Amino acid sequence: MAGVSGCIKYSMFIFNFLFWLCGILILGGAIWIRVNKDGQEILNSGDFATSPYISVNILIAVGSTIMILGFLGCCGAIKESRCMLLLFFIGLLLILLLQVAAGVLGATFKSDSERILNETVSQNVKLLSETGEEAQAFQKALREFQGKFKCCGLVNGAADWGDNFQQNSMSCECPSSSDSSCVMYEGKLVYQQPCISFIKEIVAKHFLIVIGIAFGLVVIEVLGLVFSMVLYCQIGSK
């Protein structure tokens, strides 16, 4: 009867041990942010449309899942447990299938993403000319965005600010009168380009980063599936 390959066995153990450590780091960091006072201040300092703890709860779930899979893989490899290896294989396969389903959905709705973004931005334009609490929070975020990316307004430039332009114009103003990308508006030299182009650029960039990370994870997961099944079969034929 064929024996268990030591190379595959210990490679599987090292791979899953690192996998388990990553799960601990993610879970520990997420729990620290969730319960620590400093972490809560970091969360509450951002502009969140929904509960600021949603992303942290997702990280806790991801970290826990990675830890469990890493533990099953490590123990299954060292103890040569077919049951643990099978559970590891099934868990990893389910995650891979979920990623593939998410990728298919993402590709299916990609053509609608720009339309949805345009509609969302167009709906938010009216907040720039309002004075309510929600409008002021949005205006504060946009002022910071304008100063950083040298743009003004969302869709129609400085005109999007309406009657609120004068009190929010500082982040729109050009530092130099020789800049050809600037125009005069209500007596102030401001950036001509609206911020929607930069928002689209950021969304596209982040989308590519997510695709790259997902592709890298798929390669790692497929290797994990192959190693676990080879080890599973070798243990069975020992």
Rank of each mutant, 00 (worst) to 15 (best):
G212E: 07
G63M: 04
F207K: 11
I209V: 15
K140N: 11
T131D: 13
D38A: 13
R143L: 08
C74M: 14
G73H: 03
N124I: 04
S51M: 05
S55T: 10
V121Y: 04
S228F: 03
S178F: 06
S81W: 06
I78W: 08
L189C: 06
F71P: 01
E186K: 12
M170Y: 03
L21K: 07
D47S: 08
V100D: 13
S113H: 07
L27Y: 13
V222T: 12
L223I: 15
L72K: 00
C151K: 09
I209T: 11
N118H: 09
E173M: 13
S11Y: 06
G3F: 00
I26C: 08
V104W: 11
N156W: 02
F207S: 13
Q166P: 03
Y10G: 01
S81A: 07
K200P: 03
M170W: 03
L87A: 14
L154P: 05
N36E: 15
V125T: 10
L21E: 05
Q139K: 10
E119H: 05
M67G: 01
V210F: 10
F215M: 15
E130K: 14
F13P: 00
I213L: 08
N36Q: 13
S11D: 03
G23A: 06
M12G: 08
I196T: 09
F17V: 11
K37R: 15
S169D: 08
G224L: 04
L128M: 09
N16Y: 05
V210Y: 06
C22G: 13
G216M: 09
Y10M: 04
P52N: 09
V155Q: 06
A204R: 14
M1L: 15
V226E: 07
N57W: 08
S81L: 07
Q136L: 07
N57R: 10
F15L: 11
L98N: 05
G6E: 09
Q99F: 10
I60C: 13
A141C: 03
S178A: 14
L25R: 09
K238P: 01
K188G: 00
G157Y: 03
G46W: 03
E114W: 00
T108P: 03
N164P: 05
T108F: 12
I66D: 01
C172K: 06
L189F: 15
S181N: 15
S177Y: 07
L69S: 00
S122Q: 14
L96G: 03
G103S: 14
G132V: 02
F109H: 12
Q167F: 07
L223F: 15
